Computed example of a mutant assay.
Amino acid sequence: MTTFPADREADDSSDDIIALVRELVLVETPSRDTVASARIADILSRRFAEVGGAVQRVDTAAGTDLVIDVPGSGDPILLIGHTDTVWPVGTLDGDVPWSTEGDVVRGPGAYDMKAGIVVMLEALRSLQPLPLPRRRAVRVILVSDEEVGSPVSGPLLAERAQGVAAAIGFESPHPDGALKVGRRGSARVRLGVTGRAAHAALDPERGVSAVDELVDQLVRVREIVSAPDLPGPVLCNVGIITGGARTNVVPAQAQAEIGLRFADPVTEETVLRALHALTPHRDGAVVSAEVLSARPAWQASAQDDALLEGIAAAGHPLGQSISGRPAAGAGDTNLLGALGVPTVDGFGPRGGGAHAVDEHFLRSSLRERVALLRAVLTIPAG
């Protein structure tokens, strides 16, 4: 095995594709790090310009998004991805160094999803010798805040995707390589409680405990998400709880951040409406529910299935058997699929360990995905 910390050069010149992945991985890009986002946008702007792309940079409060148009025939096929990762700066020198061992390539954000961006680049590079009538027009959208729910880029996605014929997402596939057709909806909700501070021993009756109120509200949340009359199942995870400051002070503030996953839009609407309608158990307490980010449930349509069939047909001459099925996780393709744009996701290479210290992708799968995307974007002669 060969490993390299962030400040050391490695000779991957024998494999230009892996070298390109490494170039992107060595720019550590945690969400909301606008400086790092601009750095990787510089690299990708140059790389996509080399394959004929007209690059538009969009600087936002979350980072730098890229919208890239590559000429070809017909309405463009949208390729969508993200440049941010869940990893803090310094991960390369710590838990997840860059390494290659046989078919396995590791690094923070390599699997989710910088290798997927390289699939786009290398497929487009391979199409450059073809005349424009022989290749599809392409639009690439790379956002900088996907890992935190796309709170800034998400509302702009529908506008940026206007006029596209179909959308392909480059998140990781299912473990067996199957594409993702349909995804659960997701929402991040902050449940906040304001109480009233008081001395916990001398005059506790004057206080209203925000922490106690929050505990009772979370019990109510569990009842809402498990109600038997909901149309579909809900996944609920209380990920962050904060509140209070001292044990001798009745806490005046408390909050929880809750992650929710929905199989269908009716369930999503029902649950979010119930959360906004929560009322306090204690006189003097104030309860609020704020949606921090949300992606609608995407249920596979006949158009999505037809797109999957077309991709499978393109893969057949390559010896690739392509299938697809719904996925539990949400992503930017949720909005496109829910809007009725023919959509599939999971076009990144196979691997594993997304968001974990064993994050990796398979070199052989990367090459397979490049060949498959090239076939999808090639218009047969005659």
Rank of each mutant, 00 (worst) to 15 (best):
T279H: 04
L278C: 07
A381N: 02
V25C: 14
A381Q: 00
L127E: 01
D176N: 14
V140Y: 01
R8L: 12
G72V: 06
V208P: 03
G352N: 11
A61Q: 15
D7S: 15
D145Y: 06
H281P: 00
D95T: 14
G244H: 11
V271D: 11
G53M: 01
V89G: 00
L318E: 11
L156S: 13
L179I: 12
A166S: 14
L318A: 08
Y111H: 15
P349C: 10
D95P: 11
R363M: 04
S209I: 05
D16K: 12
A210F: 07
L235Q: 11
L191T: 02
D103H: 12
A110M: 11
I80A: 06
D84I: 03
A110L: 10
A197C: 06
S13E: 10
I77D: 02
G102V: 04
A165C: 01
H82C: 03
L372P: 03
A277I: 09
K114M: 12
P175E: 14
D33W: 13
M1S: 13
G107E: 10
P151N: 13
V221N: 11
A41Q: 06
A161Y: 08
I224G: 07
E290N: 10
D264I: 07
P228N: 09
P151L: 08
G329C: 09
V86F: 09
L156A: 13
K114D: 09
R135N: 01
D358W: 13
H174M: 05
R220L: 15
H281D: 08
V70S: 01
S31W: 00
G329F: 15
R295Q: 14
I18F: 02
E171H: 14
V211H: 07
P88G: 09
F361R: 08
T60Q: 10
V219Q: 14
S209L: 09
V143Q: 03
A328F: 06
S144L: 00
A36L: 04
G177D: 10
V370H: 09
D33I: 11
A289T: 07
A314E: 03
L124H: 06
G239Q: 02
D112P: 12
Q56G: 01
P204N: 10
I77P: 02
S14D: 14
E146I: 08
A328L: 13
A312T: 02
R160C: 01
I117M: 14
E28Y: 10
G243T: 09
T333Y: 02
A41K: 01
L362K: 08
T34Q: 12
A197H: 04
E223I: 08
A200T: 03
E269D: 14
S365I: 09
A277C: 08
V152G: 04
A289C: 12
L278K: 07
A314Y: 03
R350S: 13
E9N: 12
D305E: 15
E159W: 01
A294V: 03
A274T: 07
P155Q: 08
R106L: 08
L127A: 06
A328W: 02
S37W: 06
L124V: 09
V148Q: 10
P5G: 12
A161S: 15
T83P: 10
A254D: 07
I80W: 00
